[in-house]
């Protein structure tokens, strides 16, 4: 019973983070120029690195989202998701500290209206998103996952696709 509950929580957390990443990334992948402009707004990277970094970041986000959705090496994807969210949180805190006031470029529909303003609220949102991502790192789960993956610490908790203990 506990194993099934854990699997259910893992699946919900995995799909939630997948949804966040896919929603955040599809527009960045499709319109790299607009996303590069958002990245440049932070004024952190040298000019020559802005376009390349924004393209790689957008693709990393969409791949992480797809991996989490399909359960394909989803623990590795969750590690990336968590790492990126820690980075984004730092970025939002920095933006809040400097009083940036521009759109964070995190989600579609931003533009000049600063629908998702970079700052402390954004940092709080990213910390909330970080919780389920860390859960998936801790317990990736196996339900509806393409890659069979042991859950939890080695030997502590292993289950098959339907949550039955297998060791």
């Amino acid at each position: 019973m506990k194993a099934r509950l854990m699997e259910l929580v893992s699946l919900a957390a995995r799909w939630f983070v997948a949804g966040v990443y896919i929603f955040a990334a599809y527009d960045k992948v499709w319109d790299p120029a607009a996303f590069a402009k958002s990245v440049a707004t932070y004024d952190l990277l040298p000019l020559w690195a802005v376009n390349s970094a924004s393209v790689v970041l957008a693709w990393l986000e969409i791949l992480v989202g797809a991996q989490l959705l399909l359960g394909l090496y989803h623990r590795a994807a969750a590690v990336w998701a968590s790492g990126l969210l820690v980075f984004f949180t730092g970025l939002m805190l920095y933006a809040g500290y400097t009083g940036a006031g521009f759109d964070c470029g995190c989600f579609p529909g931003g533009g000049g209206a600063a629908a998702h303003e970079a700052g402390y609220e954004g940092a709080l949102r990213d910390i909330l998103f970080l919780m389920p991502a860390l859960w998936v790192v801790w317990r990736p789960g196996r339900w509806l996952a393409l890659t069979p993956q042991a859950s939890g610490r080695d030997g502590e908790y292993l289950s098959d696709s339907w949550g039955r203990h297998i060791s």
Binding site: V55, V56, W59, L60, L63, Y73, A76, A77, V79, W80
Partner: peptide
């Protein structure tokens, strides 16, 4: 697997 994800993102993106 983490590294493979990054490589795939770089190749796919470019």
């Amino acid at each position: 697997a983490c590294l493979a994800t990054l490589v795939l993102a770089v190749v796919g993106g470019f």
